[in-house]
Design a protein around this nucleic acid. Sequence first.
DNA 1: CGCATTTGACCGGCGC
DNA 2: GCGCCGGTCAAATGCG
Length: 313
Amino acid sequence: MSNEHRDFYYHTPFQEDHLDVKPPSILGSSTYNRSTPGQGLDPSSYMSLTECLHGSVDYNSLAKAFGLSPSSSEVFSSIEESSRPVEARDLDGGNSTDQVPATPNSSVSFSSSEAGGDEDSGKTKKETQPEKPEDGGENSDKKDKAKKKAEKRQKEPRFAFMTKSEVDHLEDGYRWRKYGQKAVKNSPYPRSYYRCTTQKCTVKKRVERSFQDPSIVITTYEGQHNHPIPTTLRGSASAMFSHSMLAPAPMASGPSFPQHQGYNFVQIPAAMNNQNMGAYPQNVNQHVHQQYQVPDYGLLQDIVPSIFLRQEP
DNA sequence: CGCATTTGACCGGCGC
DNA sequence: GCGCCGGTCAAATGCG
C-alpha cells in the first residue's frame, strides 16, 4: 500500500433549517447540543484530532483515512448516518448554498451521529441473551427490552465519510477483521463489515462503494477505539492531524464538535490544507466541486444523506 | 499452523 | 402477521 493519499475536502455543515432529515432511527439521536446555532460550525469548538484519536469518538480512523489510505484516495466528504429519509432528488450538482457559512474551500467536516444505536444490533444474540429475565415476569421483561433498546441507541457514535479510493478497505492504522459482507440493495457493490481485531475493542466499520461513482468508497465507523493505533501508520496520522485540528474541544464528557440537531461534526480547519497537508493538492475547491456532483446514491442515502442528497432549490 | 476471509444461515427491526 | 432487509455469526476455506 502506498500512502499516496491526496486531497480531501470540504466541509458541509448541515443547516438544520433545511435539513430534510428526521431523527435517526437506527442511530438514535445525539445527546449533544449544537454549540453555535446560527453558524453552522464554530471554529472554537473544533475538536482536535488527537482527541478524536483517543477521545470519545472514533473519528480517528476516519481522519487517518485522509492521509493513510492505500493507493490513491481522497476523502472529499464526510457524512453522518441516519438520514435515511433524505431523498436523493434534485441533485443539481452541489449548489447547496444553503449549506453553510463556512467556506467549503478547504475544510473537511466529519459529521457523525452520536449513538448509533447498539453497537451490536443483532450480534450479541448469544452474548446478551445469557441474561435472564427473572425479575418480574413479562411486563418488566418488555420494559427491560425497550429500555435496553433505547439505551443501546444512544451508544456508539457513528461516523461516515466518503473517500475516493481504488481500494475498498482503507488503511487507517488499525487492524480490522472482516466478519461479514452483504449485497447492497440496488447496488452492484457489496458492503463489507469489519471489526477491530484488538481485544476488547468493539469498534466496527462498514465499507461500501458508491454504485453511482465506483471510485468512491463510503466508510462508516462505529464506536471508539480503546487502545492506541497498532500500526506504524499512527505516527503520521496522528501527527498530521494533531497539527491540523484546532481547538481543544470544549468537551465535558463526550465528543464535542460543532453540532446540529443530533449530529456531531468534527471540522478540520482550512489551515490544514495548506500548512499541514503538504501532500494534498491545493486546488481543493476544484475537487470539491467536481466531487460534489454525486448524483444519486440511492440506498446509500442512509449514510450519504444530507451532504450530497439534500438539495434545496 | 495460525489468522484472515468467505459465505450461507440466522436474527431482530421495521414497514406494509 | 408477514416479508424484507440490514447486520452478525460461525463453519469452511484460503493464505502466508
